[in-house]
Amino acid sequence: MALNTPQITPTKKITVRAIGEELPRGDYQRCPQCDMLFSLPEINSHQSAYCPRCQAKIRDGRDWSLTRLAAMAFTMLLLMPFAWGEPLLHIWLLGIRIDANVMQGIWQMTKQGDAITGSMVFFCVIGAPLILVTSIAYLWFGNRLGMNLRPVLLMLERLKEWVMLDIYLVGIGVASIKVQDYAHIQAGVGLFSFVALVILTTVTLSHLNVEELWERFYPQRPATRRDEKLRVCLGCHFTGYPDQRGRCPRCHIPLRLRRRHSLQKCWAALLASIVLLLPANLLPISIIYLNGGRQEDTILSGIMSLASSNIAVAGIVFIASILVPFTKVIVMFTLLLSIHFKCQQGLRTRILLLRMVTWIGRWSMLDLFVISLTMSLINRDQILAFTMGPAAFYFGAAVILTILAVEWLDSRLLWDAHESGNARFDD
């Protein structure tokens, strides 16, 4: 018995066209964080690309023209004298008006014999932002004059995390709450300039795509075929072959399989920071003279006294001054041990922890910024005066060393310790 099946006739004509040209192939790229070699397709503007294995951002879609970056830099340069030299806060102490600005706080630190601690604050609040705007201006002028731009481009990517104007702005709020127990506070004209400078700096850093600047100024022929001998440069993120001198053909720094002496430098910085954190938390970090009496505060006791007036601000200072430094030390110690013992479990967790400490590390400088600003506000000789204690130097040095330890660690070593050939990683 035959089955009668109805015929289905399409209502619209289906047209099949042959592909007349070869589909576009992607360029081969190595991930600078996990060293995976993959094919990167062509990316349009405002599109980002991520590593298929570790999800690290390979290409950032946010990109401004150099002219727009230069305009932002010149605007920031105009704001800087007002943000640093004009009063941020006014207080009335014992019937006398006192003005506080950024430069005055750094000068008070240096004047009291601790120039190293003052230079830490100076670099993060004044030096690094000033280098940022002058570097962008150098790129703008240098591109037109045919100057060598490689050193500036190499420095810009590392400079971003040292620009800490946003953290200093939080420190202004913390210092205001600490001082309000002794005097009446009012915002100064410099505060508005400083807030504007923070906003412009944040926007500029978020749109400063150094890798795209490398592509514009020093374009290189990408690798179009897969080759395990391809290496990625950690300076400019170019994937290719080393030249005859073993250097990256684009930025001219040595092109090595792994960062040289990464573990040794990381261990040295980490152990030194552990040693410095002990006096930083045991010795007094601030000293207040009130009517001839002397009151010393460690980091913890200062947080407890701050909690009596504002528990939320005390929580912020606790996280930045105690929780973050010790968390960074514990995480980095764990990561280094996992590399030495070739741990194969929990790779995803370790990668996330490394990215976390990379982002939060700079916030530990908050305590030094609060001390710097408070020193310029309260300084009335023996009637009422505020000065920093010996722990300030140890704390600042420990924070900087932990930042350097994270920067010096080559994250690809975590993958080397893991089993080879993993296309995915999980716990």
Rank of each mutant, 00 (worst) to 15 (best):
L3W: 12
N4P: 12
T5R: 13
Q7K: 10
P10M: 11
T11H: 12
K12L: 11
T15S: 12
L23I: 09
Y28P: 15
Y28C: 14
Q29G: 10
C31S: 00
P32V: 14
Q33E: 11
Q33V: 15
M36N: 11
S39H: 13
S45I: 12
Y50S: 08
P52A: 07
A56I: 12
K57W: 06
R62S: 13
T67V: 14
R68E: 06
L69G: 08
L69C: 15
L69N: 09
L77S: 15
L77G: 13
L79Q: 12
M80H: 08
P81K: 11
A83F: 02
W84S: 07
G85I: 03
E86Q: 14
L88K: 03
R97F: 05
Q104V: 12
Q104Y: 04
W107G: 15
Q108A: 13
M109G: 05
M109P: 01
Q112D: 06
Q112N: 15
I116C: 09
V121S: 03
F122T: 13
C124K: 02
C124L: 08
G127A: 04
L130G: 13
S135W: 01
I136L: 03
I136H: 04
A137G: 09
Y138W: 07
Y138Q: 02
G142E: 00
G142A: 14
L145A: 09
R150Y: 03
L156R: 02
L165G: 15
D166I: 15
Y168C: 12
V170G: 15
A175P: 03
A175L: 01
S176M: 12
I177C: 14
K178W: 00
K178I: 01
Q180Y: 07
D181A: 03
I185L: 08
F194R: 00
V195D: 01
A196P: 04
L197E: 07
L197Y: 12
R216K: 07
Q220A: 07
R221T: 07
R226D: 11
C233Q: 00
L234P: 07
C236D: 05
H237A: 07
T239R: 01
T239L: 06
T239P: 03
T239Q: 03
Y241W: 05
P242S: 08
G246A: 05
L255D: 02
R258D: 06
R259A: 09
R260P: 03
R260V: 04
L263Q: 08
L270E: 05
A272H: 01
V275Q: 15
L276P: 01
L277Q: 13
A280H: 01
N281H: 06
S286C: 06
L290D: 00
R294D: 01
E296I: 15
E296R: 14
T298P: 13
G302D: 00
I303T: 12
S308Y: 12
S309T: 08
G315H: 10
I319W: 05
I319N: 15
I319M: 11
A320C: 10
A320I: 15
I322Y: 04
F326C: 09
V331K: 12
M332W: 08
F333I: 13
L335Y: 05
L337E: 07
S338C: 15
I339N: 13
G346A: 15
I351R: 14
I351Q: 11
L352R: 13
T358L: 11
W359F: 05
G361H: 05
S364P: 00
M365I: 09
M365L: 05
L366K: 01
F369L: 03
M375P: 01
M375G: 15
L377S: 02
I378F: 02
R380S: 01
Q382S: 13
I383R: 15
F386E: 00
F393G: 10
F395V: 01
A398M: 03
I400H: 06
T402R: 00
I403R: 05
A405Q: 05
E407A: 05
A417I: 09
H418T: 07
S420T: 10
S420V: 09
S420H: 09
N422Y: 13
F425N: 15
